[in-house]
Amino acid sequence: MRDKSVKEIKEIADNLSEDKYLEFIEELKGDERKSVNKIAISLAKKLDKIRLEEERLERINAYENEGYEKGYTYIAGVDEAGRGPLAGPVVAAVVVLKQGTKIPGINDSKKLSEDKRNELFDIIKEEALDYGIGIVGNEEIDEYNILNATYMAMRKALNCLKKQPDYILADAVHIPDVDIEQNSIIKGDAKSISIAAASILAKVTRDSLMYQYDEIYPEYGFAHHKGYGTAEHYKAIDENGITPIHRKSFLKNVIY
């Protein structure tokens, strides 16, 4: 590599496939040029990140692997989005992945940017053996309360599956009236790939609905806050009253 300019070396490094990083770093060893050393260090840091991500993807398959070891064959992850907002539905999703599936970047939807969630949304649907989405609106939330409405959304999502799972991994809940073995995992959306996948499908689906509501009720700013109780949202309620998608049970102290 010493016969190549720093610019040429950088160009090679920028276009290098990940599996060639280590070999290229070895080739750069002994080159006394500081700029070349920086390129090698940069590649080494990228390699460390790749290895850390690989280790994380192994860890977040642990609950699924534990299920397979117990003899389960069709393992579903379940999560929801939208329990806290003042307006809009609660959305639940269920995802069944192939054993050993690894999707780089997948994580609790709250830890990801909107662009990353949207990217992973399509990848998850392509990778999934099966998935389902359940939506329960604000009127049912007011009638049955948010916890029961969340369970309703989860059961709806499960009913969308082509095949009933034999094991459910759920994020910090046990879904009542479901005769399937369940494992409730605290912070499961960051610990289980199936739950993380479900959290992304639920979040992206709900956000998409709130963008649609923003077009119907533009003065409320639903595209920004997605129905959560921000200062902007409360101000809009004060000025315009409530909409048909607001949860009245969440607004008992608000005059409308």
Results as ranks from 00 to 15, higher is better:
I133D: 04
Y151W: 06
K156A: 07
E143D: 13
M152E: 12
I133G: 04
Y131P: 00
N145W: 10
G132F: 01
M152D: 07
I141W: 04
A128W: 02
V136F: 12
K125M: 14
M152A: 13
L129K: 14
D142F: 04
E126W: 08
I141V: 12
Y131K: 01
D122P: 00
I124G: 01
L129V: 14
I133M: 08
D142M: 02
N145F: 11
K156F: 13
M154T: 04
D142Y: 04
I124Q: 00
E127G: 00
F121Y: 15
A149C: 07
K125V: 04
R155F: 06
K156S: 05
K125S: 06
F121G: 00
I146N: 09
D130T: 03
I135Y: 03
E139R: 13
E127L: 09
G134Q: 10
Y144V: 15
I123Y: 04
T150G: 11
E139C: 00
G132P: 02
E143A: 14
G132N: 01
I141L: 01
Y144S: 11
L129D: 06
V136K: 09
D130H: 07
E126H: 12
N138R: 02
E140R: 14
G134R: 06
E143G: 07
N145R: 09
T150S: 15
E127F: 09
I133E: 04
A128S: 12
L147Y: 13
E126Q: 15
M154S: 06
G132H: 01
I124F: 03
N145H: 12
D142S: 02
M154P: 06
N145S: 13
N148C: 05
N148L: 10
D122K: 15
D142T: 03
E127V: 13
K125A: 06
L147R: 13
I124L: 03
G137M: 10
E140H: 04
M152Y: 13
I133Q: 06
I123T: 09
E143R: 15
D122R: 12
T150R: 10
E139G: 00
E140G: 00
E140Q: 10
I146S: 09
A153D: 08
R155E: 05
T150H: 11
G132C: 02
L147A: 05
L129W: 07
Y131M: 01
I135V: 15
I133W: 05
M152P: 05
D130K: 05
E143F: 11
N138G: 06
L129R: 08
L147M: 12
T150Y: 11
E139N: 10
I123E: 07
A153K: 07
D142A: 02
M152F: 14
E140K: 14
L147I: 14
K125L: 06
K125G: 05
Y144H: 11
V136T: 14
E139A: 11
G132W: 01
E127W: 03
D142H: 04
R155Q: 08
N138H: 10
I141T: 01
